[in-house]
């Protein structure tokens, strides 16, 4: 048998470590059965592997009583702390921040660059009559926004007055009609009351006259 026909060291070591594919393992097994030289090399690798394991196992490892229990207590303490962070009080505290973020987003909508021609004055027509699910709060009728949750409780304290760009209203599905008799602000925005839901999302919009 020539040297080229012998198995490589890589294959032999992988065979010991069960890291071969099925096809490779078959080839190695068949070869080892008929090649004493490779079998010798394979056994040398095995002996070296066992010697490493023995040498490593001879390194003493000291454990102390109660280590596992100590770890368990630490894990439970961290888990408890995590769950406390999810109590209703904590969630409500986070809700406050959520409201602040929602207000920032609403401001973002107001500041959003408009896409329509500034020179075309528009009048916003609220087709509340056609809406079967319009929201009545504090004597005002709000056009519900498409992604709002109509089941959330509403009250007057959650009405925020702001300038809303006409383009933003178009984007969220509010019906607009260009009318020449009245003029919107020169920057294309209109004054509106925005009704905020308890989930921090705007529920509806009422365009101020």
């Amino acid at each position: 048998m020539t040297k080229q026909e012998h198995l490589t060291s890589g294959l032999l070591v992988k065979a010991i470590d069960a890291e071969l594919t099925n096809a490779e393992a078959r080839v190695v097994k068949e070869h080892l059965e008929r090649c004493g030289e490779c079998r010798q090399k394979y056994n040398d690798f095995r002996r070296a592997s066992v010697a490493i394991e023995s040498g490593l196992a001879a390194i003493p490892v000291r454990t102390q009583l109660g280590e596992r229990e100590g770890l368990r207590q630490k894990l439970e303490a961290r888990q408890t702390a995590r769950q406390i962070n999810q109590t209703p009080e904590r969630v409500m505290w986070r809700f406050g921040w959520g409201m602040a973020v929602a207000a920032s987003l609403a401001l973002g909508i107001v500041m959003m660059p408009k896409h329509k021609d500034k020179t075309n004055p528009v009048e916003i027509v609220q087709e509340t009559a056609t809406l079967t699910n319009a929201i009545e709060v504090g004597g005002e009728t709000f056009v519900p926004l498409p992604y709002s949750n109509p089941d959330l409780p509403v009250n007057e304290s959650r009405i925020v007055e702001m300038q809303v760009p006409v383009s933003a209203l178009n984007d969220i599905g509010i019906v607009l009609e260009p009318v020449s008799s009245r003029e919107a602000r020169s920057d294309g925005s209109v004054l509106a009351d925005v009704l905020m839901g308890t989930d921090g999302q705007p529920l509806g919009v009422h365009i101020r006259e």
């Binding site: 060291s9 890589g10 070591v13 992988k14 470590d17 890291e19 040398d44 690798f45 002996r47 070296a48 592997s49 010697a51 490493i52 040498g55």
Partner: peptide, 15 residues
């Protein structure tokens, strides 16, 4: 794989 094989190749005469 290479590190294991080269390491074992080196060690088999020493251990």
């Amino acid at each position: 794989g290479e590190n294991v094989q080269r390491g074992l190749d080196r060690l088999k005469g020493l251990l």
